[in-house]
Design a binder for these strands. Structure first.
Lengths: 201, 201
DNA sequence: CCTAGAACAGAAACACGTTCCAGTTTCTCC
DNA sequence: GGAGAAACTGGAACGTGTTTCTGTTCTAGG
């Protein structure tokens, strides 16, 4: 037993390697997008052999979706459970989505890499995908719930969950269209506005 | 000037080659999905050299999205402008979507290949993407409009268009989750039902 | 300290999308 | 029918994701 924070699988050296690999992935993605995340380049920049990279992440898609998951965790930690401003669910959800979308648009290459990987992932990436899906759902649920009510009253209905799922779908589809150059940043905002306005009324 | 039906670019021999290529693409996709559509295999099955295949379709993604476009055209021709049954827009849209989804689920491999290509397409495939987008939008618009009214009264509002776009996005996102094994066929139906019910009321 | 096994490094090899080229066939225009 | 242009063929070759192999280093248990 060592004295580190997490007790997830792996020694300190292994967690360190994993961190370096994900750092290299983010850096390369940020610089050149999906195509620039080349496994040999990631391995070299993370100072790890190619075989080791594949031992940690069994494919490029696993690697990128894992990186996306870590990004969400960092964002989650940074936001630190602050209540979402806004009077209505509509306002709060739009606030959250606008903020997230603005953040993503600040690093288009990174967003392109992560989004495309997410869309291309198949069933073998289910675990990593699930992590990301949970973050998105939680984000939207928090925004939909009334922050002035106590926590116990936030039991979401079936419909709430379904609505959050649909909003997440629209968000993702819009994002894909943006990163693939098929829609402008404004188009993303407009799509989200229409969807949220009609779904949350 | 030749005596053939279409006057689109290309001689009869060229249109014939194009048809053979798309036929081979559909056949291979139907048998083994996205991964089975290998450019060398397509070329061989279409009885065409690899270089020729690339002359007709500059990438695997162009090829698959073009195939998707042709599928829509065939479906369009087969439906032949029959009015959509159903009393309300909700009913009619659900009818159309259920029908389409059932058709897609009958050939999962083909659907997987075409859907993934569509999601992976970047700006260079804009033309082919646009064709597909138009078919989907038209399909949904027809279903939303009241068939008992004359054609001229079907001027769609901004909101109608936006709603159709959102429904299309949700449909696509659900399909992706289905073809990548992250959602069941029933989940797709449920998502569509929620989205359509809430958006068309 | 020693040893068995796991993890890693370095590098070759394979698969498939894509590009390129030399030679041949087909098309177009005179 | 002939000349030049365009399209096609067959095949080699390249890049990148992925696999595999051999030898080395690290780690845990005695």
């Amino acid at each position: 037993m060592n004295s580190l924070q997490h007790d997830e699988l792996g020694s300190a050296a292994q967690r360190e390697r994993r961190r370096r690999i994900l750092d290299a992935t983010i850096a390369l993605a940020s610089k050149g997008g999906f195509d620039a995340v080349q496994m040999r380049a990631v391995a070299e920049q993370a100072d790890v052999a190619l075989g080791t990279l594949y031992r940690y992440f069994p494919s490029k898609i696993h690697l990128l979706v894992s990186a996306l998951g870590r990004q969400f965790e960092e964002a989650d930690a940074a936001s630190g459970g602050r209540p979402v401003p806004g009077e209505t669910p509509h306002e709060r959800v739009m606030y959250v989505l606008s903020r997230a979308t603005r953040t993503l648009q600040r690093d288009p290459n990174l967003t392109e890499a992560l989004t495309r990987a997410f869309m291309f992932a198949d069933a073998s990436v289910a675990t990593e995908i699930h992590v990301v899906g949970m973050h998105v759902t939680r984000l939207l649920m928090r925004a939909m719930a009334d922050p002035s009510k106590p926590f116990e009253d936030h039991e979401p209905t079936e419909d709430d969950i379904a609505i959050a799922k649909v909003i997440g779908d629209v968000w993702l589809a819009s994002l894909v269209q943006w990163v693939t150059g098929r829609a402008s940043a404004a188009d993303v905002g407009k799509s989200m506005d229409v969807a949220v306005r009609l779904l949350l009324r």
